[in-house]
Design a protein around this nucleic acid. Structure first.
Lengths: 305, 305
DNA sequence: TCCGATGTTTGTCTTGGACGTTTGATGCAT
DNA sequence: ATGCATCAAACGTCCAAGACAAACATCGGA
């Protein structure tokens, strides 16, 4: 249903659609000769939907760490093949993933919601997050990249996951608990699903989560940590977030935060981080968040005792 | 706690912080002589936090319809005074608003959550939204503009409102219901709270809401409407959304959508819209959404009968 | 095998110009 | 006085080409 015919995008629309800034779009055109938009009567760029599709595929690969020069010459099919090849060796698409994708394609909200809730109850919140949601996210993301899932279907999926997780989190008492963990993302990082997953993982452990939602300026993160007397500040970074902005923001936040307050960074992006940063704990996957929490508690208790 | 001392922003940070594009920041500097950032060793702009604060105040006023030329010469105090003056004649800050703001400033999440839940139960979901949430949103927004509320406090407020609303919405059965209403926002519009409020208003009426969350491309909105057999597509626009993008997006969506599917547009922005657009229902406030729904049903029933 | 130096790639910032669209005011007709 | 059309100013977005710093990869040496 992704109309292949000549839909036109101006540079602003192309930016929204691809996540690549206007500067980058113009620069690539200058340097590599791609994209090569036509011009309207006013001399302004007009991108064809085929170009936008290729740019989207490129962005997705770049978010996984590939450099543009390596792939700018490839066509859409080759890009998709490459993405497929890079996909972590998946053991024959588990039945659950296939089932959820089928429900998604059938637009059966009720069945999807029921399936998720059933799994949640059967597995318990923590295993639901690590064993079900995380692989599902990957499966849906990959299917989207292969063009098997529409954007609106992915939106619906995200929304349903959020509903399920929020409902489960609310079932726990929200007061008290230790340690107090402040959850948020830096400005520019919209992806709030990671926050919710961490919260779902941590709340059953008896810790207290204070979630600010996405996009809190660093200055305000510091103020919030102090105001709420948090022992830990945890940030989440999705794959598409600019690496530089992330390290810059983390460093600046670490500088402003009292040394006693720990700073945790998690999410897809943190898998691509090379060097370790002083005073910042990297959590490349969900289980490491749990172990970090437990180790903190062990340490903290022994210290207090 | 908003540090008045010399925090530095590069143009990227200033853009994130103020919501004004780099192009606009540079253009204002060229045309009006404000802002007047200093330069770093590399010749790049460095904005002082005072400038950023004034820019933020300007943006807020502009979102309310004021033109930049009128206010670019004013200082921060004058801007705040102007915002205060423009604030819809408020009848001596109701006790509830003062109470919630106090809880927010005290960072008492538990009490805030309890207060909201109590009100929700006492008033019922619909009255809770129209009589409590809506005025509270305005009060918090105005307090934020006056500098009485920190960004992180506002984030926490939004998060708590979302928790309360989602919890209440989930209490209703999610299946069946008529009409089917597709809820989302256009790309670039992040504000999802409006969606949630509309959903909370509509679900008790027995209609079925399919929420895609924020930022769905128009093409996908059309596909989703068809896939879910929605009778109505409802979009939400916050005050800060570019008016032109909104009308353009609405017109384009109207063109692509089958005529039988209604297109509703709500949110702060729609109060500033002058001319009426063919085939698009403007809902400048929450109650108009309810009346629109009821009128749709009356019409639809009489048609079917 | 690990580390450091060197060259290449890549994104972001810069200036200054141009144009289209919206806004608000003025003048004219009803 | 109210409504409508015209016009000029205000304003935002786009364009081009250049510059530079940071990230990365590659190679050589310890």
């Amino acid at each position: 249903m992704a109309s292949p015919e000549g839909l036109a995008f101006n540079i602003s629309a192309a930016e929204r659609e691809t996540g690549l800034s206007k500067d980058v779009l113009r620069m690539w055109e200058r340097r590599y000769g791609f994209p090569q938009p036509t011009r309207d009567a006013n001399g302004e760029r007009v991108y064809a939907s085929a170009e936008v599709a290729k740019l989207r595929a490129m962005k997705r690969l770049m978010d996984a760490g590939v450099r543009p020069g390596k792939i700018i010459g490839l066509d859409l099919a080759a890009l998709n093949a490459m993405a497929e090849a890079r996909a972590p060796l998946r053991r024959e698409a588990p039945a659950l993933e296939r089932e959820v994708l089928a429900l998604l394609k059938a637009h059966d909200v009720v069945a999807l919601s029921t399936t998720l809730t059933t799994l949640l109850v059967r597995q318990g919140l923590q295993h639901f997050v690590t064993d079900t949601i995380a692989p599902l996210n990957r499966a849906v993301g990959e299917a989207w990249m292969r063009g098997e899932v529409e954007v609106f279907e992915e939106h619906l999926y995200t929304e349903q996951i959020q509903v399920a997780l929020r409902g489960a989190i609310n079932a726990f008492p929200r007061h008290a608990g230790s340690p107090r963990i402040l959850l948020t993302t830096l400005p520019g990082e919209l992806h709030a699903l990671g926050l919710l997953m961490v919260e779902a993982l941590i709340v059953p452990e008896g810790a207290q989560c204070i979630s600010l939602g996405p996009q809190t300026p660093t200055e305000d993160i510091r103020d919030a940590a102090l105001a709420h007397k948090a022992q830990i500040v945890a940030l989440s970074f999705s794959a598409g977030f600019p690496l530089r902005q992330a390290t810059e923001g983390l460093a600046s936040l670490r500088r402003e935060l009292p040394p006693a307050i720990m700073l945790w960074a998690g999410g897809e992006l943190t898998r691509r981080v090379r060097r370790t940063m002083a005073g910042i704990v990297l959590l490349p996957d969900l289980t490491s968040a749990l172990t970090a929490l437990r180790s903190y508690r062990a340490h903290h208790v022994s210290q207090a005792a």
